[in-house]
Design a protein around this nucleic acid. Structure first.
Lengths: 246, 246
DNA sequence: ACCCCTATGGCACTCAGTTCCCTGATCGGA
DNA sequence: TCCGATCAGGGAACTGAGTGCCATAGGGGT
């Protein structure tokens, strides 16, 4: 997909002729901000950037992609990050750290992120597109967790739920920061939100003793059909409590 | 966007089913299944249905909408369901029940749901569109929970996370059922999944009302601190089973 | 008979995205 | 030095989704 582009951008000094990709993003945002996303056609963008129309679609598969120029790279980073994690790590903590990678990307360009946030909030099409981007992050986290929980009872369910919760918490903190125009402490916001999730889904299968992670919120839930006989209910509870309940 | 023109379903009280809408859905799915979604143009659909092209977009704002003809109604049902819930209900149980509304819609047309599932899995555009639909459900749940958690510490965060977890669990169970071609027990799958979520996020303020909202499904949820002795757990269960006639 | 209202059909248009092909620059090897 | 191969980029033409505008048909109601 968008693998090819030159791996520069580390050079913060403005070159006289920035690569085409960057100039397209710059031109697009200039027009989006001054006349709106839907009121800007791709022809307008390429005209301002001084390049051919065909080149736009060489760098961005769709008009929406120009609004999220760095997510592809970030997703690759996250996948790589999760890929090189060992079995010793706490899986939940690991996916929380993976989520922080996304936050870091946003925090690297606060003004750009805030502008984009305002844009995506106003344009339904961009909101939908952002959802598909977020979904890919969530799937990456869920797939990782599914691997870590493989063989466990309800492993995939647990993986999906935790991934969704982590993403929701991250987005909650992130949006809170974006709404403050980048003035609040993004890291603190997201850390706080992720801590909430880790509290709900304690350090999953590991620590010895029931009071290892969150000492006070430790609850066990047992479910049974109401018609079941009492002995069946008790049996269910015993097996639940017996097998390393989490 | 999709507000103004079609007054057909805007009337919340049983509109006389427009036959054209149904025939468009039928024609569309016939073509989608026999030659694929992207290989079918809107002109193909209206030609098969024997109606004018313009009429298609009168009933469906986009080509994707014809694949999810009943979600708009279901979302309205969910909003209405959440709107008429009292302050006595456990909020988490309530949103779980709201999620079950969606499941019920899927379960009403198993073959249609399975066909659509296969379609959305194969076509990225439809997957994205489905994400936006699911997102609206999630927002409805989150808004409800935000209202219920108003004033609480981290209320909105908790609301967002629980809504995301409930949706993820619901989708996990739903997809499991869909993958079985509608042969497994959809209700049991989703109940199981939602129970997991309720386990993680116990009845927030008061554990006194077990299984408050679940009207039809014979399940009982019992909560106890993990450190409690066995006799205490059993006692809790007995009292729980003893009361709550429902 | 008239009018009004709604549903529908029929263009014609914009714009996103694709296909095909052309041009020019760069580079490696003989 | 030349040749050819590759490739980034430009450009025209095409497809198809979605929209605006207007004409028409049918059905009440008066």
């Amino acid at each position: 997909m968008s693998e090819a582009p030159p791996p520069d951008q580390a050079a913060a000094v403005t070159p006289p002729k920035p690569p085409m990709r960057d100039s397209l993003v710059a031109a697009a945002f200039q027009l989006f901000l001054e006349r709106g996303y839907e009121q800007t056609t791709v022809d307008d963008i390429v005209a301002l950037a001084g390049v051919g129309r065909r080149s736009f679609f060489r760098y961005f598969p769709s008009k929406e992609d120009v609004v999220f120029p760095d997510h592809e790279r970030c997703l690759a980073d996250m996948t790589e990050f999760l890929g090189r994690s060992g079995d010793a790590d706490d899986p939940v903590a690991r996916v929380c750290d993976a989520a922080r990678l996304v936050l870091r990307m946003y925090a690297q360009n606060p003004t750009f992120s805030v502008q984009r946030y305002r844009l995506t909030r106003r344009v339904p099409g961009l909101r939908t597109y952002e959802l598909s981007v977020v979904w890919r992050y969530e799937r990456a986290l869920a797939e990782y967790l599914r691997g870590r929980f493989a063989g466990q009872r309800d492993g995939t369910l647990r993986a999906d739920v935790i991934a969704a919760a982590v993403v929701a918490a991250h987005n909650n903190g992130l949006r809170s920061w974006l709404r403050s125009d980048g003035k609040s402490d993004a890291t603190a916001e997201v850390d706080h939100a992720l801590a909430h999730v880790q509290q709900a889904f304690g350090p999953s299968p590991d620590p010895a003793g029931p009071a290892a992670g969150s000492t006070e919120d430790d609850v066990v839930v047992v479910i049974s059909r109401r018609g079941a006989p009492m002995w069946r209910v008790v049996q269910e509870i015993e097996t639940t409590l017996g097998r390393d309940p989490d």
